[in-house]
Structure formats: structure tokens, C-alpha cells
């Protein structure tokens, strides 16, 4: 799996002459664990949505395994490059019905064992599958939505603040599961993820690379340790200092 972003640009929703971001050139390869960080409104979610072809972009070329997005079938693209939204959307029906979504969409046998294993891993092992999904708490829904997407066995997961409603314990179990997931293979191919997070601890724990978005572009791409110990730009330094202060205040 190789996803190439070549000079990707996106204009702002309300004014077509202004750029939300521009000139993003990067590559995502097998075993990449990327933390995508940056202030609010920089277009991090938009970038992930573009990568999974849920949003159009205004300039540049996107290629998956050498094939450009415009020449690809969007369905098979999204099966390989899967976006998991921050706000979980439950289908109206039971927990089990939600878990069966992928097998129902693609006419595949439902892998119940796998689903149970994932549910167990994110701390939902005791959840009754007949319960209405809408009755779950926000944090439970967020985890169920993740498991539902994991059932797709995609090669690249695009995770949009998927632990934002979770308590520290559940957060860690999700991190553990995804680290385990990324070290496995999907149909013989190595996997990767890009994870938007505002949590520096989490970024350190789960990622081997950091992408930092600021000033309408991808300002830094670096190894995780290098980025945190010695950021190359002033903006990144300030951003890290800001998040650290926030954390100290919370504690």
C-alpha cells in the first residue's frame, strides 16, 4: 500500500479564492503510524476526508498504489483507505446490526469471532449485541464505530480524533488494539494509519511520524521523537508548548 499526495490543495468552503491549505506533498507507506496534529481549523479532518475520497480537492494528484484517484473506483478505494469520523454515527438498530454493516454491504460472511475479539479489546466485551446502538453512551458509540470500521480490514485507517470521548482506560485499550492492528497484515499487505489527535502523550505512544499542519500547509513531517524534542519550526514549538501548558493546567 502506497498513498501519494502530490501538491494537494483545497480552497475554503465559503470563498473559493482563499486556500484552506495548499501544496501538500507526502507519502504514506506500509507500517507508517502517523500522528496528524495542528490547531483547529487547519483542515486536518478535511485532509483525511480528501484522502478517503469523501471530499473533493481543488488541486494536485492523489495516487493509491500508482493509480490516480480520478481513475479509481471510489468504492474499492474507500475499502482500502477508510475514514473513521470523530462523531460516531450509529445505524438505527442493534449493536449486532451495526457490527454486521460491512459484511452486509459487501456480501461477505460475518466474522463473528473477530468482532467479539475487537469488542473485547476496546472494553465492550460485556455489551449486549441486542441492545439498541442509539442507547449506548457517546464513548461506547465511538468504540463501536471503530470496531465497525475495523471489520472492513482496510490497509490504511484515517482516524479522526477517535478517542475524544473516551476515559483514559478505554483510550489506552483503543491505542493498544490499533497498535496490534497496524502490525498485522490485510490480505497480505502491511497496514498503516493516520491519526488526528490533540493529545501529545497519545501522539508519542502510537506514532512513529508526526505531520504538523499550520499556516495552510504541511509545515513539518518528522520522526516522532525528533519532532517533540527538537521541532524545526517556531510554530511547532509554540504549538507543543501550548498543549503542554494546557495539560499542566488540567492536572
Amino acid at each position: 500500500m502506497q498513498l501519494k499526495l502530490n501538491d494537494i490543495s483545497k480552497s475554503k468552503f465559503d470563498s473559493q479564492n482563499q486556500w484552506l491549505f495548499r501544496g501538500i506533498t507526502a507519502e504514506i507507506g506500509p507500517n507508517d503510524r502517523i500522528a496528524l496534529i495542528g490547531g483547529s481549523g487547519q483542515g486536518k479532518s478535511t485532509l483525511l476526508r480528501i484522502l478517503s475520497l469523501l471530499e473533493p480537492f481543488d488541486g494536485g494528484i492523489l495516487q493509491l498504489d500508482g493509480q490516480s484517484s480520478s481513475a479509481s473506483n471510489p468504492q474499492s478505494w474507500r475499502k482500502k483507505v477508510t475514514y473513521v469520523a470523530q462523531k460516531p454515527v450509529m445505524r438505527s438498530g442493534s449493536v449486532g446490526f451495526n457490527l454486521r454493516t460491512v459484511s452486509e454491504l459487501h456480501n461477505l460472511p460475518f466474522q463473528e469471532e473477530l468482532a467479539r475479539r475487537y469488542m473485547e479489546a476496546v472494553g465492550l466485551g460485556q455489551t449486549d449485541w441486542n441492545k439498541q446502538a442509539a442507547d449506548l453512551s457517546g464513548g461506547e458509540q465511538q468504540r463501536l464505530a471503530l470496531v465497525r470500521s475495523l471489520m472492513l480490514d482496510s490497509q490504511l485507517l484515517l482516524l479522526d480524533e477517535i478517542t475524544s470521548s473516551l476515559d483514559p482506560g478505554s483510550k489506552q485499550s483503543v491505542e493498544k488494539l490499533l497498535l496490534e492492528w497496524v502490525s498485522g497484515t490485510a490480505n497480505g499487505a502491511n497496514k498503516a494509519y493516520v491519526w488526528i489527535t490533540h493529545d501529545l502523550e497519545q501522539a508519542r505512544a502510537i506514532c512513529n511520524q508526526v505531520w504538523f499542519m499550520a499556516e495552510g500547509c504541511l509545515l513539518e513531517k518528522a520522526e516522532t521523537e525528533g519532532f517533540f524534542s527538537n521541532p524545526a519550526t517556531e510554530q511547532a514549538r509554540q504549538f507543543i508548548a501550548g498543549l503542554q501548558e494546557e495539560r499542566v493546567e488540567k492536572q
Partner: peptide, 16 residues
Amino acid sequence: RGEMEMLLALGATEKQ
């Protein structure tokens, strides 16, 4: 919209 996008993200066809 959220539900439709979620299904699309999971590789659903427009009809699904």
C-alpha cells in the same frame, strides 16, 4: 448525511 457518509466511508455504493 452522517449515516450516508459513514456507509460510503465503509465502501458502500451510492444505492446502498
